[in-house]
């Protein structure tokens, strides 16, 4: 565990807590893409199946369980408890255009052609693009609440910090995984436009509004 990895995980944890608190406190999931949240639940489910096959550390196990519970908790709040507040008119990104290519890519490019490995690879590919329905929703409405912006910033920062973790591990441990690294770069690049708006607008106290 290095500092980049730890900060990355904390940023990830912060993101999911911000999202849950936002929905819970405002009793509303307005502005949040249910489609992105479905994709994240699929990502955690496919990746953390190894919870039952291999033990790594208490930290690892606890974090995996937290991400799974938070993810399904978010789906529960969005699609059941606060269903009436879900803005489905603006959440129209076709997720099959993301899921199918990720399935095909996972079957073609993986470290080992076994069920768990392919599911892990699928989750890595899917995670890299899972935020697109949410970013599409923000671009469609032309704005995002500050709290939604903080969520997106924390979520984007997490994989960016993982990139530094992978650079560190490459030099310190002679350890790297090209599948995770390339997907992580794609994932971080997708947030760049948002990062720019966040830093130039939200941090200066303004609402995130896209230029007309």
């Amino acid at each position: 565990m290095n500092i980049f990895r730890l900060l990355g995980d904390l940023s990830h944890l912060l993101a999911v807590i911000i999202l849950l608190l936002k929905i819970w406190k405002t009793r509303s999931c307005a502005g949040i893409s249910g489609r992105s949240q479905i994709l994240f639940a699929a990502v955690y489910t496919a990746r953390y199946l190894d919870l039952v096959t291999s033990y790594i550390s208490a930290y690892n196990t606890v974090m995996k369980i937290v991400f799974l519970v938070a993810s399904y908790g978010t789906l529960y709040l969005m699609f059941l408890k606060f269903k009436a507040t879900y803005d489905h008119n603006h959440d129209t990104f076709r997720i099959e255009f993301l899921v199918l290519p990720c399935v095909i890519l996972a079957l073609l490019i993986n470290h080992d052609f076994s069920a768990l490995e392919i599911l892990w690879t699928f989750s890595i590919y899917l995670e890299s693009v899972a935020i697109l329905p949410q970013l599409f929703m923000v671009s469609k409405t032309g704005e995002a609440e500050s709290i939604t912006s903080h969520y997106l910033f924390a979520l984007g920062t997490y994989r960016g910090l993982y990139l530094f973790n992978w650079i560190y591990r490459y030099y310190a441990e002679d350890h790297y995984d090209l599948i995770a690294i390339i997907a992580g770069i794609v994932q971080t690049v997708l947030y760049c436009d948002f990062f720019y708006l966040y830093i130039t607008k939200v941090l200066k106290g303004k609402k995130l509004q896209l230029p007309a």
């Binding site: 690892n60 973790n165 350890h175």
Partner: peptide, 10 residues
Amino acid sequence: GTNKTLKDEL
């Protein structure tokens, strides 16, 4: 370098 899967990560 190795190209091992980083399964200790989240």
